[in-house]
Write a protein that binds this DNA or RNA. Structure first.
Length: 878
RNA sequence: GCCGGAGUGGCGAAACUGGUAUACGCAGGGGACUCAAAAUCCCCCGGCUUCACGGCCGUGCGGGUUCAAAUCCCGCCUCCGGCACCA
């Protein structure tokens, strides 16, 4: 019988489960290792071959660490609140709980078929009341620490969908689904004071072993900038000041006007009657435009004069106050002092509206552009002659002395909007009293469960679905018996994923979210693997919560994730064309275009001929036909050549490959091996079915190394006793050394190639010895655990190899007795020589010069220099 | 525009600290085994040139540093990802 993964793999998956081989228990006598995957949202579509890449990598590494004597924690669970289940509920009436349960079943089955060494006894689900209870408990802690507060926040409200939309759900001011209008409006919502942790979120990045680009993105997201606050008084003596933040206080003498964001609260107050109608029109127009649209025509700067004037803090000169949408209400103070000579945006605005531009830093040419670089201050009174950095100091000191400003720090980071107007999330453990105050539910009342509904749509204007259940909504204050209302918002999906790594340490605890003992033993996460798309938000939010836990004494480390790794995306080949049926209407015959007939400009596609606006369409990869030139063509539209692109796998692109199909054909071990062999873990690569037979053949060879076919059955091959021939021992030592190094560095692709070489060479000169065969199986086992276990058992071992010690290489066997050195003449390789490993430079030099190829190259010239690089080469310079 | 990452055979890739460019795998070609095919095993496989030995060129492009550059430096080009007027 040949290698039969279908017989072997389920057998070992059952064995691991039944013998609880991967169950993790606190054991103070053993070093721990906590490996974590970013847990998935169990979508209805199931896994595609891109998802498991990270899971397989953590599996390889955790199996390796276990064999190295570590007590490994490798858990899995479900981030199961979320929009798709709710949308499905709105459409079909199916309760999200039912959808979620079904999807979890399917995901668990698929993950288990990969043979990953999860400790399934620790499985968690964020929608489980036993989990949700503690998420709400954490919210109480945040509230008690004044890190959660209610605020009126502008959001994008879509009346037709009855819900608030995120920026990415809005296209051209309309909802992505359905194309309904969206308006900006203020709503009372929960906010989390993440900005209180801004400095620590930047500074503590120095503590962790993360890819530098990710750290950088996080630092920039927090966006700390150090500068000066300046107070501008109104020129008419009104009792208002405009506060401004700037990183260039040295240019204060160059300020020729002020600009407020249209949403700035002072706009209303200071606008003069003559300007009022124009200002109101502008403010209204800005509110109607989406943030995206505002950004899109950033080049054209518009604005309106308010009629009011501010006084220059030093000279007292009047500065006209404008409003313009290039000033953002959400950054700094929502107001800027405009220095058109030295800020490009102010320059463009001033040019467009004919406002004065003055030079206060020398070095540029203001007739061309603003000069934003450093220089020497000019036309700036007491700053004249100072360098930019000295002038900044001097001006800030002056402002402090005169009570008109001072040093300040500003962040890009904003507080975290923590409410969602949805059903399928954690309800807030609070009640709202009639006097307008808010009170926390007592711990004993947790979890606060969702009301049972059969209609999940929003219940009306500004009313989330939770408002549908009056009996849930209307309650009483347990303290006073007074009537009270529950909060109709739910928490965002982030809530559950912000602390799940802590729950995994102690998933069944009913007294606390986790015990101190478990946290002290398992934390921090030693290796965290997931997609780079979570580089900023998830990791920043989780770090924020962790720091709060630290301040509460609930965790003992400042940072949760010690080492982070982003797996590259598995891409799929998709096949694209275009048509002019923009709305996707049915029953029409759209004009179709091949990509060569289409012009792409940003996000819009137009026909080169005729200029009609077009939309991209995809043909499912399995439906694509080929013409005589092997070009991909449309199956139904004759002659339409498709464009082959490699992009992210998704259902809409028709390029999804399911692991179920791959496992059915080749087995899990082959799929695992292929995913690790494709290339470096952190690099993206297109999935290719055609390459799998290569690794599958390797596993077949591995199987035949130990099992031979007889007439009707099979038997173990005859193995030599003892450690094997000297050659075999050397090969084994080298394989152990190389594979170990590669796994430590997470270079799984090269580890596998070393295993391929090892298996090919090992039986070449003599019968395989038992010891060498065992080394091979142990090295193979993290990658192809099912096959390795099977063969290990056939060698007569009654126990799983999961707990076997990892082999070690005998250092003496790694040393070579002779070395092959390349011989170069003037840097070009001309020959090679064989020398004893301990040969001295003089011997090597003589051997190299004795080479006939060298003599031919030198053609009688004397070598000027001979460079001997130990163990590598000899370079003769002539 | 800014920030990050990457460009090496027909393809996925390797070369770890500057030291023999293309390991390993896919596809392709040839051979062995077979009545035949599949499977398996062995060999070849960057380009140009030479009967051959060999020679020349070659890691996106152009320069540079070095005895020696895929690797370091300067200037560009292309692709992928992220961010978007941050005062």
């Amino acid at each position: 019988m040949p290698y039969e993964p279908k017989a072997i793999e389920p057998k070992w998956q059952a064995y691991w489960r039944e013998h609880a081989v991967f169950a993790a228990k606190v054991d103070p006598d053993k070093p721990k290792f906590y490996v974590l995957d970013m847990f998935p949202y169990p979508s209805g579509e199931g896994l595609h071959v891109g998802h498991p890449k990270g899971y397989i990598a953590t599996d390889v590494f955790s199996r390796y660490k276990r064999m190295r004597g570590f007590n490994v924690l490798h858990p899995m669970g479900w981030d199961a609140f979320g929009l798709p289940a709710e949308q499905y509920a709105i459409e079909t009436g199916t309760h999200p709980r039912a959808t979620t349960a079904r999807n979890v079943e399917n995901f668990r089955r698929q993950l288990q078929s990969l043979g990953v060494d999860y400790d399934w006894s620790r499985e968690i689900n964020t929608t489980d009341p036993r989990y949700m209870r503690w998420t709400q408990w954490i919210f109480r802690k945040l509230y008690e620490r004044d890190l959660a507060y209610l605020a009126e926040v502008p959001v994008s409200w879509c009346p037709a969908l009855g819900t608030v939309l995120a920026n990415e759900e809005i296209i051209d001011g309309r909802s992505e689904r359905g194309g309904h209008p969206v308006v900006r409006t203020a709503m009372r919502q929960w906010m989390l004071r993440i900005t209180a942790y801004a400095d620590r979120l930047i500074d503590d990045l120095d503590e962790v072993d993360w890819p530098e680009p990710i750290k950088k993105m996080q630092r920039e997201w927090v966006g700390r900038s150090v500068g000066t606050r300046i107070d501008f008084e109104l020129a008419n003596g009104a009792d208002e000041t405009i506060e401004v933040f700037t990183t260039r206080p040295d240019t204060l003498f160059g300020a020729t006007y002020m600009v407020l964001a249209p949403e700035h609260p002072l706009v209303e107050k200071i606008t003069t009657p003559e300007q009022r109608s124009e200002v109101e029109r502008y403010v209204e127009a800005t509110a109607r435009r989406s943030e995206r649209a505002r950004i899109a025509d950033a080049k054209e700067k518009t604005g309106v004069f308010t009629g009011a004037m501010a006084a220059h803090p030093v000279t007292g000169a009047p500065l006209p106050i404008w409003i313009a949408d290039y000033v953002l209400a959400t950054y700094g103070t929502g107001a800027v002092m405009a220095v058109p000579g030295h800020d490009q945006r102010d320059y463009e605005f001033a040019k467009g509206l004919d406002l004065p531009i003055v030079e206060v830093v020398s070095g540029g040419d203001l007739s061309e552009a603003a000069y934003a670089e450093d220089g020497i201050s000019v036309g700036s009174d007491f700053l004249n002659g100072l360098s930019t950095s000295d002038a900044k100091q001097r001006m800030t000191d002056w402002l402090e002395e005169h009570g008109k400003g001072g040093r300040a720090v500003s962040y890009k980071l904003r507080d975290w909007l923590f409410s969602r107007q949805r059903y399928w999330g954690e309800p807030f453990p609070v009640i709202h009293l009639e006097d307008g105050t808010t009170a926390l539910l007592d711990e004993s009342e947790l979890p606060l469960l969702l009301p049972e509904l059969d209609d999940f749509k929003p219940s009306g204007e500004f009313e989330p679905p939770l408002a549908r259940s009056r009996e849930w909504l209307e309650t009483t204050d347990p303290a006073t018996g007074a009537p009270a209302l529950r909060d109709t918002n739910t928490m965002p999906q982030w809530a559950g994923s912000c602390w799940y790594y802590l729950r995994f340490c102690d998933p069944n605890n009913e007294q606390a979210p986790w015990s101190e003992e478990a946290e002290r033993y398992w934390m921090p996460v030693d290796l965290y693997v997931g997609g780079a798309e979570h580089a900023v938000l998830h990791l920043l939010y989780a770090r924020f919560w962790h720091k709060v836990f630290y301040d509460l004494g609930l965790v003992h480390t400042v940072e949760p994730f010690q080492k982070l790794l982003n797996q590259g995306m598995v891409l799929g080949y998709s096949y694209r064309y275009y048509d002019d049926n923009l709305a996707g209407a049915e029953g029409v015959e759209p004009a179709v275009y091949s990509s060569s007939e289409v012009r792409i400009d940003g996000e819009t596609a137009t026909a080169i001929e005729g200029g009609a606006e077009l939309k991209a369409r995809w043909v499912r990869a399995e439906d694509v036909q080929r013409d005589a030139d092997r070009r991909p063509i449309h199956p139904d539209i004759p002659g339409l050549v498709l464009e082959e692109v490699t992009e992210k796998m998704s259902k809409s692109r028709g390029n999804v490959v399911s692991p179920d199909d791959v496992i059915e054909r080749y087995g899990t071990d082959s799929m695992r091996l292929y995913e690790m062999f494709m290339g470096p873990l952190d690099k993206g690569a297109p999935w290719s079915d055609a390459a799998i037979p290569g690794v599958h053949r390797f596993l077949q060879r591995a199987y035949r190394l130990l099992v031979e076919e007889t007439g009707g059955g099979e038997r173990l091959v005859d193995l030599a006793d003892g450690p094997g021939t000297p050659d075999q021992q050397r090969l084994a030592a080298r394989a152990i050394h190389g594979v170990t190094e590669d796994i430590e560095a997470m270079r799984f692709n090269t580890a596998i190639s070393k295993l391929m070489v090892f298996s090919r060479e090992i039986g070449r000169d003599a019968a395989l010895s038992r010891e060498v065969a065992e080394v091979f199986l142990l090295l193979l086992s993290p990658f192809a655990p099912h096959l390795a276990e099977e063969l290990w058992q056939r060698l007569g071992h009654p126990q799983s190899l999961a707990a076997e010690p990892w082999p070690t290489a005998d250092a003496a066997l790694l040393e070579e007795s002779t070395l092959t050195l390349a011989v170069q003449v003037n840097g070009k390789r001309r020959d090679e020589i064989e020398v004893p490993a301990d040969a001295d430079d003089e011997t090597i030099r003589r051997a190299a010069l004795a080479s006939p190829a060298v003599a031919r190259q030198l053609a009688g010239r004397e070598p000027k220099r001979v460079i001997v690089v130990p163990g590598r080469l000899v370079n003769i310079v002539s």
